[in-house]
């Protein structure tokens, strides 16, 4: 497992520069605005992209078939990608906390907002990963776009008005913030567990 994660980190070395520039840019914008919501969302997205990019490297080089001839199981291959994503998320949260401490204003809201954003990103990651393990990079990209569009299409075609949607947001806003976070966190953990289980099943049945 250690070797698999190390391999991903080394493969992704070329991307680190681009990631750092993006984080620095959004960090500066957020520091100027005093709000970290966009920053949280941005690094959350990077976190979701990281394992997908690592998988693309593996696909291109034919790594997975080779890895399975080593003392590595299919489960290890799946879990290493989730561990990579969770490690990136932990790093993103630490960075967020540092920025929140620097911004100082609305510290509690910023941190809570960051946790909620990370939970949403974890749910998104949980949906994306099985798709990514099932299909190759090209197909998975198309399916991911469709998956983003589906809720939008449902809302539009079901005729849900912006007023009603806003009413829903008001209703959510009436919940205590900490309760909302607890719900988000529980949903994220559950989604992650189910996602890992599905991904292992997919990879177990995959022909490399």
């Amino acid at each position: 497992m250690k070797g698999l994660i190390l391999k991903d980190l080394m493969n992704l070395r070329q991307q680190w520069g681009a990631y750092l520039i993006i984080v620095a840019l959004w960090g500066m914008i957020s520091l100027k605005d005093g709000s970290l919501s966009v920053f949280s969302g941005c690094i959350g997205m990077l976190m979701v992209m990281l394992p997908a990019t690592a998988l693309a490297y593996d696909e291109r080089s034919g790594w997975n078939a080779y890895a399975l001839t080593m003392p590595v199981t299919r489960r290890d291959i799946v879990l290493s990608k989730y561990i990579l994503a969770l490690a990136a998320m932990a790093a993103a949260m630490i960075l967020n906390l540092v920025f929140s401490a620097v911004v100082r204003e609305n510290f509690f809201e910023n941190v809570l907002g960051m946790f909620c954003t990370m939970c949403v990103m974890t749910i998104w990651l949980s949906i994306l990963m099985p798709v990514r393990f099932k299909f190759d990079a090209e197909k998975a990209r198309v399916i991911s776009i469709v998956m983003v569009l589906i809720p939008v299409v449902i809302i539009v075609t079901a005729g849900i008005s912006i007023d009603r949607a806003a009413g829903g947001v008001d209703m959510i806003n009436e919940f205590p913030a900490i309760f909302a976070f607890a719900v988000f966190a529980a949903a994220a953990v559950a989604a992650l567990a189910v996602s890992m289980w599905i991904s292992v099943k997919i990879v177990n049945n995959k022909d490399f």
Partner: peptide
């Protein structure tokens, strides 16, 4: 099956973790 982004020294470190 090693990615083109790696070098032989990287392979040595990766494989020692496997």
């Amino acid at each position: 099956a090693f990615s083109g982004a790696l070098n032989a020294d990287d392979v040595n470190k990766i494989m020692s973790g496997i």
